[in-house]
């Protein structure tokens, strides 16, 4: 771990204990978020990316539970030293995690239409976060709120601060959400598909805004999306998730130019490219399997075009292709040594 590491997720497992069986939504995830950098978590719907990122705030909805693993948060203290706390170990309703939420780690969501309560003004919902985490008076908090609203590009902020969310457009609401997230001056901003519900022009504006604010506030960004176009635009590093596991992790150029995992390759192939003038889309074959019927071995093998016979029985381990490029696939594992190692046991 370098001094630049902000959050380390180690072998995180979140299982949902339902009547129909146990759903292993997150099943041994390892992630590292660097200070001031953008990590993009990519995957299809239902791969566990939203569950995993909420766990960073220790928000896990029942019947889900963090079964094992660590979420190490490295906090810099005022005296120049640093301390490490394990978020996974905290009481989800306790003081300790509540002091991190909204202040050190903030989050914005997919649905700007429903993420703000229609009962309270935009301003009061932002002020709530400020009053919760600082000693400011209401007047100071209000002034800061107006300042933040102006910063995220909301016109006439001194008037909109008293406006109710349902009188704002989707883009404006997402800006207000960003203002709320920024109000605690977080070290990490988690964004769960923040542009998915917006139209394309608004999407671009919001992305630009987030990148600019990230620089200004020197905060790390964990960006969850299934939109690879967005990934290319904002990410420093990319983690590809499939059925609760990170199958490939590398810097953004490597992911787009030299993807190694068959799933990443298939994902990239499935994007329609204007330049290639292809007639048909090239989707990934098959469906995401039911969460109750996880395939044995590598979870991707039933849909994989390059699957080996071993893929249905052996769970691939992490292979380090180089310092920054990790992949979980038997194609890159030295199968002979692995078998030799496993035989005695």
């Amino acid at each position: 771990m370098s001094d630049e590491t902000l959050v380390e997720v180690q072998d995180l497992k979140i299982h949902f204990f339902t009547d129909e069986g146990v759903v292993r939504a997150v099943d041994g995830v390892n992630l590292t978020v660097q200070r001031g950098k953008t990590l993009s978590l990519v995957g299809e719907s239902g791969c566990g990316k939203s569950v995993a990122c909420r766990a960073l705030l220790h928000i896990v909805h029942p019947p889900g539970r963090i079964v094992s693993g660590k979420i190490l948060y490295h906090r810099r203290l005022d005296n120049g030293l640093s301390e490490t706390v394990d978020i996974a170990d905290m009481d989800p309703k306790g003081r300790e995690i509540r002091d991190i939420r909204g202040k050190e780690i903030a989050m914005i969501f997919q649905e700007p239409m429903t993420s703000l309560s229609p009962m309270y003004t935009v301003g009061s919902q932002i002020m709530e976060n400020i009053l919760l985490h600082t000693n400011m008076s209401k007047k100071e908090a209000r002034a800061l709120t107006i300042e933040l609203l102006a910063k995220v590009g909301i016109p006439k902020p001194e008037r909109l601060v008293d406006e109710y969310p349902f009188r704002l457009s989707g883009g404006m609401r997402q800006r207000a959400m960003i203002a709320m997230a920024l109000s605690g001056r977080p070290n990490l901003l988690i964004a769960d598909e923040p542009t998915t519900a917006l139209d394309v022009t608004t999407q671009a504006n919001i992305l630009d805004l987030m990148l600019e604010l990230q620089k200004q506030y020197d905060m790390a960004l964990l960006f969850i999306t299934h939109d690879l176009g967005v990934v290319a635009e904002i990410a420093d590093e990319v983690a590809v998730m499939y059925l609760g596991r990170i199958v490939e992790k590398a810097d953004v150029d490597t992911i787009f130019n030299a993807p190694m995992h068959p799933y990443t390759q298939a994902l990239l192939r499935s994007i329609p490219k204007i330049a290639m003038k292809r007639e048909e889309l090239d989707p990934i074959k098959g469906m995401v399997p039911s969460p109750y019927r996880r395939p044995g071995g590598c979870p991707f093998h039933p849909r994989c075009t390059k699957a080996l016979p071993e893929c249905s029985t052996i769970v691939p381990a992490i292979t380090k292709l180089n310092e920054n490029h990790l992949v979980e696939c038997l194609l890159y594992e030295d199968l002979a040594t692995r078998k030799a190692m496993e035989r005695p046991s």
Partner: peptide, 25 residues
């Protein structure tokens, strides 16, 4: 509802959160 999650992610205490947001609605 998502607004409950937003409020939770701000770090509101659970009981206050419950009364102020979902119960109010």
């Amino acid at each position: 509802k998502p607004y409950v999650e937003t409020a939770r992610s701000k770090g509101l205490p659970e009981f206050k959160l419950l009364l102020k947001y979902p119960v109010r609605h």
